[in-house]
């Protein structure tokens, strides 16, 4: 049984500065989306529980991915299947899903495809659903628990107003929520070994996919914040502020 985890390389959003309302991406380190790391942790722990099979990370992005992927290989992935192409920079979720689906087809005996419920930058949540459709597989989104037993899965989907427990035959596509687990911190040896784990690399042309985008972005600006930042020094001043704002209490 092999488990595929699809991960997206993104700029570390905590380190993005805003200048003239524009996001400054230069010099911002690349990483994987934080919920993608929860998906990887789930994959690795399911594999450990099974005692067999491999965890294979698939990802598509820029050249730096060869370096970023080491994070995932250190955190327990066995192999990486990467699509690296400058042309992917303009690609949107639809193209990425197509690329990942084609890559997953190259992997044998896939029983489970895991993604985060949303990427760390766009949080659009389309890729997993598109991959499931392209591969004609059942899917369960927003999983807060996943068990594998005797060729079937038992997945708990967490919704706004409740949960549902589903039994789904393998293979299937699952997206996980952030609180499903706590990703492990790799040890120094694991980090050192990560560079030696296998990476298979393709370009878009190898997959026969034309880059393109179904979505055009006309502007992307930070909202204007005009806040006064008046310093409040004591509880008395705090109470005065509440009164000035018209909240006097009951």
């Amino acid at each position: 049984m092999n488990i595929v985890v699809a991960m997206k390389q993104i700029p570390d959003v905590r380190q993005i500065r805003i200048r003239n309302r524009q996001p400054v991406l230069e010099g911002v380190p690349l990483t994987f989306g934080s919920i993608d790391k929860n998906a990887l942790e789930l994959g690795v722990s399911l594999k450990e529980a099974q005692g067999s099979g491999k965890v294979i990370v698939v990802s598509a992005g820029s050249e730096e991915l060869q370096d970023t992927i080491k994070e995932a290989l250190a955190a327990g992935a066995d192999e990486a299947y990467l699509v690296i192409d400058d042309k992917l920079e303009q690609a949107d979720g639809a193209v990425i899903a197509h690329v990942l689906a084609e890559t997953i087809k190259k992997i044998d005996d896939v029983d489970l495809i895991l993604c985060g419920e949303g990427s760390g930058d766009n949080y659009s949540g389309q890729a997993a659903s598109r991959i499931a459709e392209l591969l004609d597989l059942p899917q369960v989104g927003y999983a807060s628990a996943v068990e594998i037993q005797n060729g079937t899965s038992r997945v708990t989907r967490s919704l706004e107003d409740g949960e549902e427990v589903l039994e789904v035959p393998l293979p299937l596509v699952v997206t996980v929520v952030a609180d499903i687990n706590q990703p492990r911190i790799p040890s120094v040896t694991q980090i050192l070994k990560a560079g030696r784990k296998p990476q298979e690399i393709w370009e878009l042309a190898d997959l026969g996919i034309e880059p393109g985008a179904a979505v055009e972005t006309v502007s992307n600006l930070a909202p204007e914040l005009q806040r006064q930042r008046v310093v409040v020094k004591s509880n008395e001043e705090f109470t005065q502020v509440l009164q000035a704002e018209g909240f006097t209490g009951r």
């Binding site: 949107d92 979720g93 639809a94 899903a97 949080y123 659009s124 949540g125 389309q126 890729a127 997993a128 659903s129 598109r130 499931a132 459709e133 392209l134 899917q139 989104g141 927003y142 967490s158 919704l159 706004e160 997206t175 179904a214 979505v215």
Partner: peptide, 23 residues
């Protein structure tokens, strides 16, 4: 764009060959 709606959006868009935006 509740959870079910978001999950459905990508799958339906793929079936319809449509571009998609969520949230």
């Amino acid at each position: 764009s509740n959870r079910r709606g978001k999950e459905l959006a990508g799958r339906l868009a793929q079936r319809l060959n449509a571009g998609c935006l969520t949230d």
